[in-house]
Simulated assay, not measured.
Amino acid sequence: MTIRLRPHHLLCMLTFVGKGYTAAFTENYIRIAARLSAGEDILVVEGPDDVCAPMLGEAENHCLCDSVTERDLKASEAVEALLKIPAGPGASIRPDADFLGRMRDAFSAGSIREGCARCEWSPLCTGIADSGFDGVLVKPLDC
Rank of each mutant, 00 (worst) to 15 (best):
M55H: 02
T69D: 15
L100P: 01
A75F: 13
P86N: 08
V136H: 03
V17P: 00
Y29N: 00
R35K: 14
E46Q: 15
R104F: 12
A38R: 04
G39D: 05
P95H: 01
A129E: 06
A38T: 01
G132N: 03
I32W: 01
D49L: 14
L82T: 00
P54Y: 09
M103F: 08
L64F: 13
H62Q: 14
G90K: 00
S108V: 05
C63P: 07
E114F: 14
R71D: 12
P140V: 06
F25I: 07
A97L: 04
E70Y: 11
D105Q: 14
A97S: 14
K19A: 14
I93W: 00
A34P: 00
G135N: 07
D49Q: 11
A81I: 03
P86A: 15
F25E: 08
K74T: 02
V44T: 04
G20H: 01
F107T: 02
L64E: 15
E70H: 12
G88M: 10
A78F: 09
D98Q: 09
M55A: 11
D105N: 13
V68S: 06
S76D: 12
K84H: 09
T22Q: 12
V136F: 11
D72R: 08
L73E: 09
P86T: 06
N28R: 03
D98I: 11
A81V: 05
A34Q: 12
C116E: 13
I42A: 08
E80H: 05
E120R: 09
G132T: 03
P95C: 06
D105C: 12
L56Y: 07
A59G: 08
Y21D: 13
E60N: 14
E114P: 02
K84E: 14
F16S: 05
L73D: 12
